[in-house]
Design a protein around this nucleic acid. Structure first.
Lengths: 330, 330
DNA sequence: ATGAAAGCGCTAACAC
DNA sequence: GTGTTAGCGCTTTCAT
């Protein structure tokens, strides 16, 4: 690998000069700059970001830690942060925890060892332990900062849950279940909260027997639905913890001979790409995924730049009900 | 940030000793090791991978360059790579090119600047220019190595195209179109090749008018189908370039009042997660995505370890037809 | 068993 | 406009 020293030697200047020329710093004659650039090109010089990082104490790199790359929700966010990052010459390390706390911890450690300038994280669960000793600037998505040290971005999940439930109620469904993801998940809690609020507001019974949790995956949605359907007093509608779960619900419900939306209603959460497919047409709660990613990056940049006198922000975005074909309208 | 010097000072040994203790190298008394470890823990020491990378000339990091993180095909591969990497303490940088050559080039450059130990790439298009000057060990997915310098992994795309087409023919469809992704894509070419071979073998007419290209996205699938449907002699079946495209085809075909699979057949390619959804049930060509990722990483590791006397491999995996509900059986 | 010193490739004072 | 030097945090000889 060719270094600036090689170039310097070749054209007979000090390697400082080469460094300056390469970085467009003042104090080098136009002639030398040109010579350096030409020679660098010719020798196939590749700057060493590692060495630069060592002295600059900054790597122009951030980490993005997400729960499940297989859930289109996260790629959508990732696109937002990537695009924003690219614009200012930043690179992003994408880390997939598979909602596992140990994975998360190990990724966080690695990221700090790699000296990323900042981290955007969608915490795996709401156990806060992993976050305590992170010294790198970090902004959190879909999670409160229990330590109060980090800015957060989230959609108003309670409102989303409320909107979803209200919609189902107004459509005339009578017994509305909630099928969530991980039990210890903040977004889940908030969504249930909104769900319950809606039920109460419309004088529906809040029945803990039809509020169930599993994981944020399609399979879990299927299994839990099956259990509910086989129970004594099965629901005729479901508010799902996310769109993946909703998919599982739909599948199961159809397997059991129900007809959606006529005798069973389903609403999801996230409004992921596939939800608008004509074959699916899932009624769901939309959140501005790309924008969340973009915003997260911008806030992170703020914090990186003003590490000392930074302001911790809590940003709450508006969710929006998108009515499609898995709920009847009347 | 605390460094090994800090902890050396604290317990009164040289920092060399600390380094040795931390890395479990021989030549340090058990007592000192324990003292060091304890102090490191207490002071919250985080090794600096950047500094280490500088001297070791290796970063325990690889780059994974893919076309579209939004296509579940790639996350599936990414999972395979990640899991394999994690097992040996490697990290992976995920880069999303959006099938853009400039993005790809810039990511490749960044990756080399960051001195990743290796790269796994699914080239954006088959313009080979970007690959020429990559000096880092690299293995390619779904693309031949035109320079002959890199190992490659691919599914037998021609066979896949053949299988898909043969299946459609045997199901009795009469006029089978091919709706591909990017025109200049290797996998496309191979898939078309298999498609044509099947047609010929069964004495079907190969009609270039119903062989069309766009991009590997759902929307493109829709648009192209629409055009075909409106043409003079519309097809009654489609071999799609991938599952995303197939989705677009299905959508369009239904919009135009066709009934799948009775009067229109569709087969996709990749067997992405959503294809098995009950609402979709896409007949498609499966490829072992997770395994491809795993294998790619393992081969890359081989090459990293034996940089000098490495063997360029070309690995071709078997595709498999998965018959579901978008093609009739008879 | 431990330490001193060199050096990885680069940037940033500080001189001239 | 250019060069000298120190130093980023670490690993690795080479001494002792």
């Amino acid at each position: 690998m060719v270094t600036i020293k090689d170039i310097a030697k070749k054209i007979g200047v000090s390697y400082t000069t080469v460094s300056r020329a390469l970085n467009g710093k003042p104090g080098v004659s136009q002639a030398t700059v040109e010579k350096v650039l030409k020679e660098a090109q010719k020798m196939g010089y590749q700057p060493n970001a590692i060495a630069r990082g060592l002295v600059k104490k900054s790597t122009n790199t951030i980490g993005l830690v997400i729960g499940d790359i297989t859930n289109p929700y996260f790629p959508a966010i990732a696109r937002g942060v990537e695009d924003a990052a690219k614009k200012v010459g930043y690179n992003v390390f994408l880390c997939n925890t598979n909602y596992d706390k140990d994975n998360e911890k190990s990724y966080l450690k690695t990221l700090e060892e790699q000296r990323v300038d900042g981290i955007i994280i969608n915490p795996a669960k709401d156990d806060v332990a992993n976050m305590y000793d992170v010294k790198t600037p970090m902004v959190m998505i879909n999670s409160p900062s229990y330590t109060g040290n980090h800015s957060t971005i989230e959609v108003d999940n309670a409102k989303g849950g409320f909107l979803a439930t209200k919609h189902l109620i107004e459509a005339g469904y009578k017994r509305i279940a909630f099928i969530g993801g991980d039990f210890v998940s903040y977004v889940n809690e908030r969504r249930v909260e909104g769900y319950k609020r809606a039920l109460r507001q419309y004088n529906y019974l809040v029945d803990e027997k039809i509020i169930v949790y599993g994981s944020f995956k399609t399979k879990s949605g299927y299994t839990l639905t099956e259990k509910l359907l086989k129970s004594e007093n099965p629901p005729d509608a479901v508010v799902a913890g996310n769109d993946l779960i909703a998919l599982g619900v739909l599948h199961c419900v159809e397997d059991y001979g129900y007809h959606v939306p006529d005798d069973f209603g389903v609403v999801g959460f996230d409004n992921v790409d596939f939800s608008e497919l004509p074959q699916i047409q899932l009624t769901t709660i939309d959140q501005p995924k790309y924008y969340i990613g973009k915003l997260a990056f911008e806030i992170l940049m703020e914090e990186i730049k003003h590490k000392e006198e930074r302001f911790v922000k809590k940003i709450v975005l508006e969710p929006e009900l998108v009515v499609r074909k898995t709920t009847r309208i009347r």
